[in-house]
């Protein structure tokens, strides 16, 4: 199986710290793979390494069969990878529209696709010309995700999209993620909220100490509460 995202023995060092210590991971094409684990397990570093924002010191990253680990972050993006960081990183000095214009690097904005995005993020239509810095936290998250899907991509890397959001908004976000998945894109989603993971995930990978310690179907983990508490420990309760 070569489609989708594959990491083989990926090590990442940040300064003196050895964060990823041999990550082996498969995120099958067109499906949503959850990446779970305690704080500090290396989830964000894994996403940043795939995106090329940290350089893997060892190991291979393959996207649909092509190695991407040696590429510059911008080339990885052009290979079809989009990133929604935990900080959202919207350009607050730019308007919502300008944020999306930049994200649509292959040409002008596609009106049909924008309407599709407005369908689940109506706030973006409302604040189309407002500075992104004036949006609420939830709206910034919408914008950050919208930026990732404003053009068709092959792989979405999404880091804790529900962090700090109100429950009502989380529900909307879940619907949106399911909708995006229907377009056939591969999703790798870091999530602390187990309920969200259970709702949207097809597969689950659990990280600890810079390694993958469990791979399986999301449904299987959801059904096995003993396995959950063994793998995820307190972090699960804290977020329920």
């Amino acid at each position: 199986m070569s489609a989708g995202l594959i990491l083989q023995g990926v090590h990442t060092h940040i300064g003196r710290y050895h964060i990823l210590q041999g990550v082996d991971l498969v995120a099958p094409e067109g499906e949503t793979t959850m990446l779970l684990g305690r704080n500090g397990a290396g989830k964000t570093t894994a996403l940043r390494t795939i995106m090329g924002l940290w350089r893997a010191s060892q190991g291979a990253v393959m996207l649909d069969g092509a190695p991407i680990a040696a590429l510059h972050a911008s080339a990885i993006a052009r290979a079809g990878v989009a990133y929604v960081p935990e900080t959202m990183a919207v350009f607050s000095d730019l308007s919502v529209k300008e944020n999306l214009v930049l994200a649509a690097r292959d040409g002008p904005l596609d009106d049909v696709r924008i309407e599709w995005i407005f369908g689940f993020f109506p706030a973006l239509r409302k604040f189309w010309l407002s500075r992104a810095g004036t949006l609420s936290g939830g709206q910034k998250q919408m914008l950050s995700i919208a930026r990732a899907i404003v053009e068709p991509r092959r792989l979405l890397l999404i880091d804790e999209p529900t962090k700090g959001l109100a429950p009502a908004i989380i529900g909307a976000l879940i619907d949106c993620l399911k909708e995006i998945k229907r377009t056939g894109v591969t999703i790798l989603l870091v999530e602390q909220n187990f309920r969200v993971a259970q709702e949207v995930g097809d597969h689950v990978r659990v990280m600890d100490g810079g390694r993958i310690i469990h791979q399986g179907a999301m449904a299987a983990l959801a059904a096995d509460s003993a396995l959950q508490s063994r793998l995820l420990g307190l972090s699960l309760d804290a977020h329920q």
Binding site: L53, S74, A89, R105
Partner: peptide, 11 residues
Amino acid sequence: ENREMVEALGY
């Protein structure tokens, strides 16, 4: 504002 994100968008 955020040059890393600009790179992650493919520039």
